[in-house]
């Protein structure tokens, strides 16, 4: 900034240097606000929560964090209840990602060929993805309602006492285990299959027609064309869709919270829901919740790594 004081009398060389410095300054000016913001709201909490994971601390207590080493981690990993939540999350992730992949792929194959109204249809299919998850949760909660909900009506159950109560895991008054979990899975599939469809569709459009034409001339059956041409060509994009959805499934919170709040009992208590409960509801066990958050993070990184490795292997081959 001192350069600016004698700005009026500058040789051309100095002016050039000044312009160079000014470019630098502009670069810094653009980058630093973003970096500061990222450090303040991303990096700092990340490392602070890592530290808190090793302490006994409650955000609402008038008490400084007390270092307890790995106690939080060992507590969580020795807690049978926590293992159950992990298992529920695993089940949820497997079911919802699996179904989304199948349905998304099928939808993509369906709207792949241009026909009258295919553009409109594609847009319509994409709508669920664009609605806020909390809103989707509330909508479906109403639709699942056994007395006035649309869901039972469409299934043909008009009498609430003989039909299913999805979110209460009951059918005609009897308990059906995991029905509520499946209800949540169904909504997640409804909401996110379009996402898989979108990615697969872009993969399908990139497959050149002449491959199919060559196969047709070579007398390959359509089944064979699907397995040998379509699937391998789309696989990398499909895998990315699956990766994104798996990460999201492990973090699933808003939808479940909006629909069941983890219930009935703890049937839909996914790990993220439980994390929220430990961190902010009643107990405010900030230290333990931070440790749990890190365990989830490690699981997600591990799973992603598996996918990415497989993806790279596949890319290397083709």
């Amino acid at each position: 900034m001192s350069v600016q004081a004698n700005a009026p009398r500058l040789s051309s060389q100095e002016r050039a240097r000044r312009r160079y410095l000014t470019d630098r300054a502009i670069v810094n000016l653009f980058i630093w606000p973003t970096l500061i913001l990222l450090i303040a709201i991303n990096l700092f909490p990340l490392f602070y929560s890592l530290y808190l994971g090793f302490t006994d601390y409650s955000a609402i207590a008038r008490q400084v964090p007390v270092w307890v080493g790995f106690k939080n981690f060992s507590d969580i990993l020795n807690d049978q209840q926590m293992w159950k939540y992990f298992a529920t999350t695993g089940k949820y992730a497997l079911a919802s990602v699996g179904l989304q992949t199948l349905l998304g792929f099928a939808l993509a194959m369906l709207v792949r060929e241009k026909f009258r109204g295919s553009g409109l249809l594609t847009t319509l299919i994409l709508i669920p993805m664009m609605i806020s998850p909390v809103v989707v949760g509330l909508f479906w909660k109403l639709m699942y309602n056994p007395t006035f909900g649309f869901f039972n009506y469409l299934l043909g159950f008009t009498n609430p006492s003989t039909g299913p109560d999805m979110l209460a895991s009951r059918f005609a008054g009897k308990v059906v285990p995991n029905l509520a979990l499946w209800a949540v899975v169904l909504v997640d599939v409804w909401m996110w299959s379009p996402f898989v469809m979108l990615l697969v569709l872009s993969g399908l459009k990139a497959i050149p027609d002449y491959l199919y034409e060559a196969a047709a001339i070579d007398r390959a059956s359509s089944w064979f064309q699907f397995w040998r041409i379509t699937l391998p060509q789309v696989a990398p994009l499909l895998l990315i869709a699956v990766l994104f959805r798996t990460i999201e499934a492990f973090k699933a919170f808003d939808l479940v919270m909006g629909m069941t709040g983890g219930g009935p009992g703890d049937q839909t208590e996914l790990i993220a829901v439980n994390l929220y409960r430990q961190a902010f509801l009643g107990q405010w066990r900030t230290g333990r919740a931070s440790a749990l958050a890190y365990i989830v993070l490690i699981i997600i990184i591990a799973v992603s790594n598996l996918y990415i490795r497989y993806l790279n292997k596949m890319r290397g081959e083709s």
């Binding site: 060559a214 391998p232 060509q233």
Partner: peptide, 8 residues
């Protein structure tokens, strides 16, 4: 454009 099956 050659049209070979890329994964084989």
């Amino acid at each position: 454009q050659y049209s070979l099956y890329p994964t084989m």
